[in-house]
Simulated assay, not measured.
Amino acid sequence: MTAYWKANQRRLAPLLFLAPGMLMFAIYVIIPIAQSMWISFYDWDGLGERVWIGTANYVELADDDSFYTSLKNNVIWLALYLLAVPAGLLIAIFLNQNVRGIRLYKSLFFFPFVISQVVVGLMFAWFYAPNFGLFYKLTEILFGSGTAVLADERFVTYGIIVAGLWPQIAYVMILYLTGLNNVAPDQVEAARLDGAKGWRMLWYVILPQLRPATFIAVVVTVIGALRSFDLVSIMTSGGPYGTSRVLSYYMYEQALSEYGYRMGYGAAIAVVLFGIMMIFISGFIWKMWRDETER
């Protein structure tokens, strides 16, 4: 055994270091995903006996109007949430400058990231509140009648997304600030000598060096947009009339709330959500891999 270890030490040592992390990943990620997929083929309340029903849960999803409402809202979340990436980049570039008071500005922009999503939800719920909310009062002054955003089917989803974008932009900003610290100054100086500045400098010199930060920013933003459970739960509980539901919240309603206890149906929703998430993330990983191989 000792002879085998000495002969293969370079090959085995990395595997030994990776083994604890891989074991935890398998226990807490891979196995639960597989179990969710398996449960989605059953009719089960979480306590009693499971009854195999095959693809019946997925067939029911295909005719479920609440599912399509949740799916539509998730698409809106995803489209608007990706605005956090360019917004975070622009703020990071501003905060990367050496100007007077920059530490204060960094603290103000960093603040949303360190507070709980529960606090964010409550703050914006008060901000939108009818009669006394700041936003309600502003719309009342400007348009003559106030807008109760969280009680209006037309605006409720967009109001929650704005609340989510506030801390998400701060998170993306931190990722880009870290990336900007690793930008090669010699490349920037060489580009300046060649006459590059402004958007040309950003597009051709800075952004290519920020690809790792961009990858992480897009991945965490996509994941945040697709799960988006906490703010919906805190601010509206899916209302009014279920119009602000997203897939993660609808899954909770069906599987774990007093409305459902349908673990199999909830698991089917979770599988669909996981599939959508993997499509977006895998597509972006493939694009980054193709760009790297073409360089």
Rank of each mutant, 00 (worst) to 15 (best):
G164Q: 02
L193S: 12
S237Q: 14
A87Y: 08
L78V: 02
Q97Y: 02
R103I: 09
V222D: 04
F41L: 15
S282L: 13
I285W: 12
I76M: 11
N73V: 03
N57I: 02
V75T: 13
V183K: 00
M263W: 09
L90T: 05
L95D: 00
V183G: 01
K72R: 15
W44N: 04
Y158E: 08
F111L: 15
M288P: 00
W38K: 14
T243S: 15
V120G: 08
L165H: 07
F111I: 09
Y259I: 04
V59F: 11
D230H: 07
F135V: 05
E294G: 02
S282V: 10
P185E: 06
S257Q: 09
I216G: 04
F143I: 01
A13M: 15
A84K: 07
Y249N: 00
P212D: 01
S116E: 03
T221M: 06
L15G: 13
P14C: 11
N182V: 01
G133M: 10
A84M: 06
V272N: 06
S244N: 06
L231K: 03
M235A: 04
F25Q: 07
I115P: 00
F94A: 14
A151M: 14
Q117C: 01
G275R: 08
F274G: 14
R227C: 03
G264T: 07
R10A: 15
K287F: 11
I33V: 12
A270K: 06
G242D: 04
V120R: 12
G21Y: 11
T55M: 15
L18A: 15
A62W: 12
T69R: 11
L175M: 10
F124P: 01
T157I: 15
I276T: 07
S244A: 09
M37W: 11
A62I: 08
S116H: 08
E294S: 13
I160Y: 02
D194I: 01
N181H: 05
M263H: 09
I33G: 11
G121L: 07
L82M: 14
F25L: 15
